[in-house]
């Protein structure tokens, strides 16, 4: 592992995960969750688990974000708390 890349990705993972929890706009949270998944995908690539990274990129960052957006579209966009 190359530590500057690792540090940058891990920082972004923490930022996006906290952001996805804090944001009031559910659509924004869905997009942040997609970004989080993509950062996890990069992290796995750095660690050499390419198959897992591929799955994360297609399932986590790709399709599940679309599912979240579709679900937000069918409910309300703002959370109460």
């Amino acid at each position: 592992m190359v530590w500057p890349i690792d540090l940058a990705i891990l920082t972004l993972v923490v930022i996006t995960s906290i952001g996805a929890l804090m944001v009031k706009d559910l659509l924004g949270a869905a997009i942040l969750f997609g970004a989080y998944s993509f950062m996890m995908c990069l992290l796995w690539t750095v660690m050499g688990a390419v198959d897992v990274a591929f799955t994360e990129a297609s399932v986590g960052a790709g399709v599940s974000t679309v599912f979240f957006v579709a679900a937000v579209f069918r409910t309300s966009r703002r959370t109460k708390d």
């Binding site: 390419v50 198959d51 990274a53 591929f54 799955t55 297609s58 399932v59 790709g62 399709v63 679309v66």
Partner: peptide, 21 residues
């Protein structure tokens, strides 16, 4: 190479979802 049924299936499904969007 990396990949297999799961990833390929998800990408195939995503192409139809892209059409729907």
């Amino acid at each position: 190479s990396p990949g297999g049924g799961f990833q390929g299936g998800v990408i195939l499904g995503a192409s139809i979802i892209l059409l729907a969007i």
